[in-house]
Design a protein around this nucleic acid. Sequence first.
DNA 1: CGAGCCCTTGATGCATTTCAACGAATGTGG
DNA 2: CCACATTCGTTGAAATGCATCAAGGGCTCG
Lengths: 233, 233
Amino acid sequence: MTLDTSKVSIKTSLASLFGKNLYEVDGDQLFLDELSQCAQEVTVREGSYIFKEGDPSDYVYVAISGAIMLERSTSKGVRHVFAFLFTGNLLGLSEFSVYSFSAKALNNVTVIKMNKKIIQSIFDRYPTIAKRFHQFTTHVLHYILDQMFIMGQKTAHQRLAHLILDMAHRIGHGTNRFFLPMGRQDIADYLGMSLETTSRGFSHLKKQGIINIENNYKITVLDSAALKEFADI
Amino acid sequence: MTLDTSKVSIKTSLASLFGKNLYEVDGDQLFLDELSQCAQEVTVREGSYIFKEGDPSDYVYVAISGAIMLERSTSKGVRHVFAFLFTGNLLGLSEFSVYSFSAKALNNVTVIKMNKKIIQSIFDRYPTIAKRFHQFTTHVLHYILDQMFIMGQKTAHQRLAHLILDMAHRIGHGTNRFFLPMGRQDIADYLGMSLETTSRGFSHLKKQGIINIENNYKITVLDSAALKEFADI
DNA sequence: CGAGCCCTTGATGCATTTCAACGAATGTGG
DNA sequence: CCACATTCGTTGAAATGCATCAAGGGCTCG
């Protein structure tokens, strides 16, 4: 169980988690050495689960590459998608003994898998790292609050516009062309609408000349200002 | 700026925050002594704000009595209600420099007001307390996730049924009779629906014999099983 | 008693879901 | 390499849910 912390992809992901200048701070190299002892690089194939709702929450994960979907289902089979995660995002930070949702790989995914108990003990000895970690939790809280706001306030098409803007930002990193890793049904279950409404939303934005769609998944934002206006930001 | 930590109401609230056996743990009396130095009991009149969105987030609050509503407004005047808080709930745990929402007193409220910087320094010296505090953050996360799940749920009336069950649990504490501290508009802005739909939802549940309503605010759950069935849990 | 506030109820139109059919892309076996 | 099945997305039509507009009722307080 060792982790190559000199690998660029891993560096990038850890930096986005614990702070950009992680490798510059005094004593952090020690932390990284310890981390590499309790961490492990794992690949997960498209469609399979990193962990499932109800599994003992023994590990914390950091996404290195690929796209992950957090979902939960009711006993009656109704599904809800909580989030889409990408490089640098953290999974499984529950304080509870079991995960309260499942994490599904939308494509081939690599993650860093860290033993929660060991990482906890590391945190006890590196309070600066622990603080950064907990700051991350409140950032997540902040993000979810925004998401809740969107869920409550917007019409279905506006919510979709907001998702596209979010994806353009998180996947496209500023460029206006990106590849959606999830299907229409996933988006529908994320935004709380039907599959058909999602599809109509895409079609509508395309007809308006605001976005372009190739092959269902390849999206280009043609008029970013109009999209923002439409999303009512 | 001193706090009477022997007062029963304060004991109860702190216990619900930091753990039930707070007063029994070794060294925690010391923590409480320090806390009492940086904390203050404050009363807030009905309708006024404990803090507002954009205020510098210098304080953390714990609700002692009364009901609090967390809300946010867009530039265009659209309001969203994030949460209703009661005895023992924590407010203002943002890691950001300003609050990202406002906290309004729904009735006369008393809170413990704690200086964030001082409490932070206390946490540095009492890691056990700090850990409990951060655990609380993830509990909030958990709660909000549930809320998001409900927001994605099918019908408006189902969401309302969820809220009633939640209130029965949190205000009524198991009994089936409780007093709603918020108005129909607040509920509407919380569940992402119109005032009228909220009202119709209440009327519908009343006609079905599932709940009873006196004086608009006094609610009795007559058939808890039916209400759960309706909420589709 | 009247004003003001909040809640309720009704009517109407728009947004969204649901049902259903079709089309595009992908993969499989003959 | 071509039918065929399968999966996923699109589109249309009908039904339903919800918001909006509008009016009325009950409560509280001056």
